[in-house]
Deep mutational scan, measured.
Amino acid sequence: KRCPSCQAPIEKNEGCLHMTCAKCNHGFCWRCLKSWKPNHKD
């Protein structure tokens, strides 16, 4: 998949759905690609 903010390629190996892009530091949900918020729901 690609970061929804900067389009950098992102690879997920394991862990939770909260992802942070290493290039732009954007926090997002791996499943729905929406911005991550404390009360995030898919």
Rank of each mutant, 00 (worst) to 15 (best):
K34H: 06
Q7H: 05
C21I: 00
L17S: 07
H26C: 01
C24K: 04
P4K: 00
I10T: 09
G15C: 09
C6L: 05
K37L: 08
S35R: 04
P9Q: 11
H40Q: 08
C21Y: 03
H40A: 12
S35L: 12
C32A: 01
W36A: 12
T20Y: 15
P4S: 08
L33I: 02
C32G: 01
T20M: 10
K1L: 02
M19K: 11
C3L: 01
K12L: 07
A8L: 06
G27W: 11
W36M: 09
Q7R: 14
K41Q: 14
C32S: 01
G27L: 03
C16N: 14
P9R: 10
A8N: 15
F28M: 04
F28G: 12
C21T: 07
M19G: 06
C6M: 03
C16E: 15
Q7S: 03
N25I: 08
E14W: 04
T20E: 05
K12V: 07
T20P: 09
S35V: 08
P38Q: 08
P38E: 14
R31F: 06
R31N: 14
R2K: 13
A8T: 10
S5P: 04
N25K: 09
N25E: 10
R2W: 05
C24F: 02
G27R: 13
L33M: 09
I10N: 02
K1W: 00
K41T: 05
R2V: 07
H26M: 09
H40G: 09
E11P: 05
W30V: 10
H40P: 09
D42P: 08
C16V: 15
K12Y: 08
W30D: 11
P38F: 12
N13H: 08
C6V: 04
A8M: 08
C24P: 06
C16D: 15
C29T: 00
K37W: 07
C3H: 06
W36F: 07
G15V: 03
H40R: 05
N39G: 14
T20N: 10
C16Q: 15
K41H: 14
C3K: 01
G27S: 14
I10F: 05
H18E: 11
R31C: 12
N25L: 06
E14V: 04
N13M: 11
P4H: 11
H26E: 09
Q7A: 10
F28Y: 10
R31A: 10
H26T: 06
K37R: 08
C16A: 15
K41A: 12
N39E: 10
I10Q: 06
H18Q: 13
G27Y: 03
H18G: 07
M19Y: 00
N13W: 11
E14C: 11
C24S: 04
L33K: 07
C3T: 03
P38R: 04
P4E: 00
L33D: 06
R2S: 12
P9N: 10
L33P: 03
R31I: 09
K23F: 11
K41M: 04
H18W: 05
R2I: 15
S5T: 14
H26S: 12
E11Y: 15
A8F: 11
G15H: 02
G15K: 05
E11K: 05
L17K: 00
W36L: 14
C6P: 01
G15S: 04
R2L: 14
S35Y: 03
E11V: 03
L17V: 11
H40D: 13
C32V: 00
K1M: 08
A8P: 02
K23Q: 03
C6S: 02
N39Y: 04
C29L: 01
N25P: 04
K37V: 12
G27K: 12
N13Y: 06
M19N: 08
E11L: 05
A8S: 10
D42M: 01
H40M: 13
C32R: 00
M19P: 11
N39H: 04
C3I: 15
S5M: 15
K37H: 13
M19I: 11
C29F: 00
L17W: 07
N39L: 11
N13I: 15
W36R: 06
H18T: 03
S5H: 05
S35I: 03
M19C: 11
W36Y: 07
R31T: 12
A22Y: 12
P38S: 06
K1Y: 12
C3N: 13
S35E: 14
H26F: 13
C29S: 01
C32D: 07
C24T: 01
P9G: 09
I10A: 07
C16Y: 10
K34P: 04
H40S: 12
H26K: 05
G15W: 07
P38W: 03
P38L: 07
L17Q: 09
N25W: 03
C6N: 12
M19T: 14
P9Y: 05
K23G: 06
A22T: 09
L17N: 00
E14M: 13
G27T: 15
C29W: 00
L33A: 05
D42T: 09
S5R: 15
E14L: 03
E11D: 08
C32Y: 01
P9C: 09
Q7I: 04
T20G: 05
P38H: 00
W36Q: 12
H18F: 10
L17Y: 15
C32N: 02
C6Q: 02
P4F: 15
A22K: 05
P38T: 07
C6G: 08
K23R: 11
W30Y: 00
C3P: 00
K34I: 02
K1P: 08
D42G: 07
A8C: 07
F28R: 07
T20A: 07
G15P: 06
K34V: 01
W36V: 14
D42W: 01
S5F: 03
K12P: 12
P38M: 04
S5I: 08
C21P: 01
R2N: 15
K23V: 05
W30A: 14
H18I: 08
H40I: 01
K41N: 08
K12A: 13
H40W: 03
H40E: 14
N25T: 09
